[in-house]
Amino acid sequence: MSLLIQELKFDFKTRSVLRDIEFGLKPGEILTILGPNGVGKTTLLRCINRILQPKKGVIMVGDEDIISLNRNEVAKRMGYVPQRCETGRITAYDTILLGRKPYIKFNATNDDFERVNDIIKRLDLSDLSMRFIDEISGGELQRVSIARALVQDPNILLFDEPTSSLDLKHQLFILRTIKNIVNTQQISSILTMHDLNLALKFANRYLLLKDGCVFAYGGDEIITPENIEAVYGVPVMIEKVNGQHFVVPLD
């Protein structure tokens, strides 16, 4: 299902954080939000599924405006994976089952359990499922968090820095998993990221933020040395190795 954002504005008390944010996303596309620290990447992500309430704007998923839906209905359309997740003496299985929360009336049903089992198989989490989440590694917890967002059965998946606490192998594993899910289920995904090269490898749309506004939005063509320097303040060159672009800082 497509996503369309128009004239999104968010203020923190009297300070303007985001304004005039506009972009769109088609099914099967992965968008990364890029920009320096503090520019409002995470804030934008939280505004999209209304963890933070935007001051104004339109957020259309298909032909529905997210702003007019209640929180539970939003949760059925968007899954959100934050940077970190609180742990406790809860099994990975129950953690994933929690993703069915928007659908559970009183008890989890057979359908809920089946969906959890299905995701566990697809993300290869069988060995982890009965372990407590306060005893598993950061990378494993990240995979469990993604599974929880997936059982929400969302059309849009939002990830805040999904690779920030992972080693190289797991960074690639998680991003491949996300790409695979987006492709097979034809959903859309938005990621915030610091690593430009990982973004170039996995995303097909980019949103460059500067001073709370969209500096550039588009495909690979907007990742130019000029744009990167304008946004991050660092001169770079872009090299092509084995058919893939790499951003190399010149400073």
């Binding site: 599924n49 929180r71 609180e86 809860i90 929690l98 928007p102």
Partner: peptide, 22 residues
């Protein structure tokens, strides 16, 4: 009746909100 809400809040406020909890 609120046990699922509390489970969600235990996972963190952001996650709870993302799961539809007010």
């Amino acid at each position: 009746l609120n046990r699922w809400n509390y489970n969600a809040i235990d996972a963190g406020d952001e996650i709870a909100k993302g799961l539809g909890v007010n």
